[in-house]
């Protein structure tokens, strides 16, 4: 059955694995996936809020994992548990804070230009999915806040029929959403968002007038670090 050496080219061209690999590498060659250069216009503090959002998400997942390791009641009873609960809360506040500033910045840059519509869409959906991710956390707290939020927010869910399958007063269900389903959704969306940014590159500035494209492209002939991401086919 097996033969020495690589399989014949005809067999390879039919391989799903090969197609996925070649498609992936074509869309995101390694130097584009992990670039070591950025266009020179990427020079403002506003650019740090995307990575700050991701960093906050990493701290959220880290602190949340520690809380999950010890179970949902641990943080009420121990100082260390309360400490990690606080980290979890504040990283969520920082996450939303950074996302909002990132969002404002990207809006005023019209960062969807040049075929980057999907970058905006995945970012916006991430923000919207993060809201129930936070809500299910609030109702998983097992304290008065959780009781009140669950009994109040249930009416909104029920009014649109969602209460039939998303019951805020069911702790077990909310905890599952909070520690598994919604975090997975947020992480997948952020992953797609980042890959799309890497694929298309950071959106270039608006052109000020018609003469300028020639002037801007003249810069390409001059020195600088290896433009590993130039020639982007976005």
């Amino acid at each position: 059955m097996s033969s020495v050496g690589p399989p014949p080219a005809t067999a390879r061209s039919k391989s799903w694995t090969v197609k996925v690999r070649e498609g992936g590498v074509a869309a995101l060659p390694p130097e584009k996936l992990l670039p070591d250069g950025q266009p020179t216009y990427v020079a403002s503090w506003i650019y740090v809020f995307g990575v700050a959002s991701i960093a906050s998400l990493i701290v959220i997942i880290g602190s949340g994992s520690i809380l999950a390791l010890k179970g949902p009641a641990w943080w009420h009873d121990t100082g260390v548990g309360h400490f990690f609960n606080s980290i979890h809360l504040w990283s969520v506040e920082l996450f939303f804070f950074a996302m909002v500033v990132h969002l404002w910045g990207k809006y005023w840059m019209a960062a969807w230009r040049g075929g980057r519509g999907r970058v905006w869409v995945t970012g916006a959906v991430t923000f919207l999915v993060a809201i129930p991710a936070a809500l299910t956390g609030y109702v998983s707290q097992q304290n008065f806040d959780a009781q009140w939020i669950a009994t109040q927010a249930k009416d909104a869910m029920n009014s649109v029929g969602a209460g039939a399958f998303f019951n805020l007063t069911n702790f077990g269900q909310m905890y599952s959403y909070h520690v598994l389903l919604l975090p997975v959704a947020v992480v997948l969306l952020v992953g797609a968002h980042v890959l799309l940014v890497r694929r298309h590159g950071v959106v270039p500035p608006f052109e000020l007038e018609k003469k300028l494209p020639a002037a801007a492209s003249a810069g390409a002939e001059t020195d600088g670090p290896p433009p590993s991401s130039t020639g982007a086919t976005s």
């Binding site: 950025q38 020179t40 990575v51 700050a52 602190s63 230009r113 040049g114 670090p225 020639g231 982007a232």
Partner: peptide
């Protein structure tokens, strides 16, 4: 939409370092 792919200069950039610093700063803030 007449946004063209960037044909201009690139400046050195360390993506992994930036992410690491961001995680450090956010952890400190939290």
């Amino acid at each position: 939409d007449d946004t063209q792919p960037w044909k201009g200069r690139y400046a050195p950039y360390d993506l992994i370092k930036e992410l690491s610093i961001a995680v450090g700063v956010i952890t400190l803030l939290a």
